[in-house]
Design a protein around this nucleic acid. Structure first.
Lengths: 211, 211
DNA sequence: GAATGAATAAAACGATCGTTTAAAAAGGTC
DNA sequence: GACCTTTTTAAACGATCGTTTTATTCATTC
C-alpha cells in the first residue's frame, strides 16, 4: 500500500474522524471529503464501511502487537537464562510500553481513542475484529504473568489482567483530552509520568495479597 | 413519576435497548415499539432523544450517588470520632459497593453498560450529562482519599483515582458478558468475588510506593 | 355534562445514511 | 495506437432517522 495512495488517505481520514465522532456517527461522505477522494472509493477499495473499520485496526495492531510479543519473549528468554521467574515489572512494561509512541503523535492518539471505544462498542463485529487481532498477544502476556506470579490462581490473575486492561483503556483514552479535573491542577501530567504511575499502580495491584 | 407510566415504560425500554445497541444505533421507533407506546411520546414527554438519554442517567445516579455520599460521610465521621485518618479500604468500598446491587438485576446491568459507554462516548453532550451528575460525589471521594493517603501528592492521587475508575468501568461492563477468555475457565466468576478482587487490587495500587 | 388541558395517535416532513450503478478517465501491455 | 484492466467520478437508489404537525381521545374541574 503506497504512501499517499487513495487507500491510505481514506484510512488516515477515517482514523481521525472515527476518533472525533465515533464509528456510527461518521459518514462515508465525511470521510471521503476529508480524504479528498470520491464517495464510492470506500466501497471500491474496502468493500464496506465495516471492512474499513477492520482495516484500521489491522494496520496498526500488527506492528503494535508485534513489538509487544518481541518484548515479552525477551523477558521470558532472560528469565530462562537466569533460571528465575520473569520479572513482573518488565512483563508489564513489555505490554504497555509499545503503545507510548502512539500517544506522541496526533494520528496515533486518534487510533488509541478508537481502540478504547472498540472494547465497549455496541457493534459486536467491531469488538470481535479487535479481539481477533489481540488474542495471541493477550495469551502470551497472560502466560508470562502466570510465570511471574505462580502463587496466584488462574482466575484471580485473569481478573487482575482485566483490571489492567481497564486502566490502560481509560487512561490512554483520557490522555491529552480535557476531562474531569477536581482541583484544577495547573499543569497537565505528561505522558511519561502517567505511564510510570500506571506501571507502579498495576504492579502493586498484581502483587496484592489474596483475601 | 408513576410506576408503569408512559415515561417509565420509555425509560426502561430505552435503558435495555441502549445497552444492547448503543445510543446512536437505537432508534426512537425501536424504543417506542418495545415500550408499547406511540412514536411521538418520546418527544412529547422528554423533548428530544438527547434529553431522554440525560433522564436515564439522572434517574439512577441520583440514588446511586446518594448512597455513595452517605457511605463516604460515614467513613469520614468515624475517622473524625476516632481521630484517625479515614480507612482506605472503607473509603474505596463506600464508592464501589452501591453499584453492586445494580449488577444483580438485568435492568440494572443495562444501566451499568450504558454508564461504561457514556464515559467514552463520542458525543460530548452525553459525556457532560454524565459528568455533571458525578461531579459532587467524585469531589467528595477524592477529598476522602486524600485524607486517607496524606503523603500522596494531589496529582499522583488523581491519576490513581482515574485508574480506579478505569477498572470499575471495564470490569462492570464485562460482568455477565461473554468476553475474551484465555483458558476457557469453566465457571464464571461471581460478582461478589469479582468485587472483592477489585477492591484488593485497587487498595494495593493506591498504597503503591512512589517512584 | 360542557369545557379545558394533558396525553395519545397517525401521518408526513426533510435530511442523511451505506451502497450500487454506469459512464468516464487513467494506467499498463503488446 | 489499440486493447484491457484498474481506478475515479457523478448520480441515483432505497431505507431509516429525529422531529413536527394535526387530529383525536382521555381525564379533570367547575
Amino acid at each position: 500500500m503506497a504512501n499517499g495512495s487513495t487507500k491510505e488517505k481514506i484510512l488516515d481520514a477515517a482514523e481521525r474522524l472515527f476518533a472525533r465522532s465515533g464509528f456510527h456517527s461518521t459518514s462515508l461522505r465525511t470521510i471521503t471529503t476529508e480524504a479528498g477522494v470520491n464517495l464510492a472509493a470506500v466501497n471500491y477499495h474496502f468493500g464496506s464501511k465495516d471492512a474499513l473499520i477492520g482495516e484500521i485496526f489491522r494496520r496498526r495492531l500488527k506492528k503494535l502487537n508485534g513489538q509487544r510479543i518481541k518484548g515479552l519473549e525477551k523477558v521470558r528468554k532472560e528469565a530462562a537464562e537466569r533460571k528465575t521467574r520473569p520479572d513482573l515489572e518488565a512483563t508489564i512494561r513489555a505490554f504497555i510500553a509499545p503503545s507510548l509512541p502512539l500517544l506522541r503523535s496526533e494520528q496515533g492518539t486518534c487510533f488509541i481513542t478508537i481502540v478504547a471505544r472498540a472494547i465497549m462498542d455496541p457493534n459486536q463485529q467491531v469488538r470481535q475484529i479487535f479481539l481477533r487481532e489481540m488474542k495471541d498477544v493477550l495469551a502470551l502476556f497472560f502466560d508470562t504473568l502466570q510465570s511471574a506470579l505462580p502463587h496466584l490462581p488462574q482466575d484471580a490473575l485473569f481478573s487482575r489482567l482485566q483490571f489492567m486492561l481497564g486502566i490502560m483503556g481509560h487512561t490512554m483514552f483520557n490522555a491529552g483530552k480535557p476531562s474531569w479535573n477536581p482541583l484544577k491542577l495547573e499543569q497537565e501530567t505528561g505522558i511519561d509520568i502517567l505511564f510510570e504511575r500506571m506501571i507502579s499502580f498495576v504492579k502493586a495491584g498484581m502483587e496484592a495479597p489474596l483475601e
